[in-house]
Nucleic acid binder design. Sequence first.
DNA 1: TGGGACATGTAAACCGTTACATGATTGA
DNA 2: TCAATCATGTAACGGTTTACATGTCCCA
Lengths: 183, 183
Amino acid sequence: MLKYILLGFLKYRAMTGYELKSLIDESTMHFWHAYHSQIYTTLRKLEAEGLVSSELEDGDDHLTRRTYTLTEVGRAELTAWLNTPLTETVPEKEDLLVRIFFSAERPTQDVIDELRFQRQLHQRKLEHYLQISRAPLQDFSAEERQGRASDLPFWTSTIRFGIEYEKMYLQWLDETLEQIERL
Amino acid sequence: MLKYILLGFLKYRAMTGYELKSLIDESTMHFWHAYHSQIYTTLRKLEAEGLVSSELEDGDDHLTRRTYTLTEVGRAELTAWLNTPLTETVPEKEDLLVRIFFSAERPTQDVIDELRFQRQLHQRKLEHYLQISRAPLQDFSAEERQGRASDLPFWTSTIRFGIEYEKMYLQWLDETLEQIERL
DNA sequence: TGGGACATGTAAACCGTTACATGATTGA
DNA sequence: TCAATCATGTAACGGTTTACATGTCCCA
């Protein structure tokens, strides 16, 4: 899946692995996450497959940057993937729920503490997503964002998902806490 | 993570891989999924680690069943894991959102069709979860469920998560469809 | 001079998916 | 007799995570 995220962003413009990493951290965080190690290796793999090409640039500074450009083959592969609709849902994988499911014999206070801590984390995530939704794609310049105006409704849809997900999560945590506190 | 689900269920009683598979399909589906291939190999690995022991049984029929039993070491490992609270959230991985994020240049109707199809899938999942919440842990006998009465509030909490998640998902799909149809 | 951001990689381990493979029992 | 369910496994592949590894630039 990371493959298509990289191709998708490179369709906007040529970028370095580092830029792609920042973009993923900032913009897809609420539906996809990747470590820099995977990003760099995947870019090399995509280059070997001919979906992207790369150029090593020595800037004014002495930092070496490798800039990746989407090839025609890469562009076609991305379009082909987008034209193949999903026919399934992705199975949920929620570590916290595994723990809750088997928590009957844990000390009640421990469970409560764990849920309260999760509440803080999700509260923070919600606030972060709300901030992104107010000013999306900060890594792109104003002109670039204007050039991508047609993308905006799709970007805001995904961030709205993140916001609604976190709200749902917080409410579930509150209800579950209430229920456990009553035991 | 599957490791702890297996240990968790084996704490209830000794079971075969097949029974564990059915239980996972029925009861943890809304927060964890696993193929039988992974279940059987993980059980063997847990046995090699001494966390479970197994016995081959020839029943009246000629089906050979391997029944796994939780060892003391396994029980301790499960308890230790449960006593180590999560300090992070699991990163989201939502294939559909990746597609939506990069869907600006797709034919609008294709996007709408894909979202409508997802709507059907999630509607079905919601109905399935509602059914489970009415009668949880059907794979367990009535007596067994009574013996596990203290687990019930935790099980119902997780299934409530599944239900609220699917409701949120459906609402998000509806709002997104509405928005895209207006474009 | 030290820390943080910039910048790029490799290697090993681990986990999960897909495909291959087999065979018995039960009820329609 | 055919399909569904019961029952158990192996192998290969691919994707993700964790750890290791290095070096520059810029500002306080």
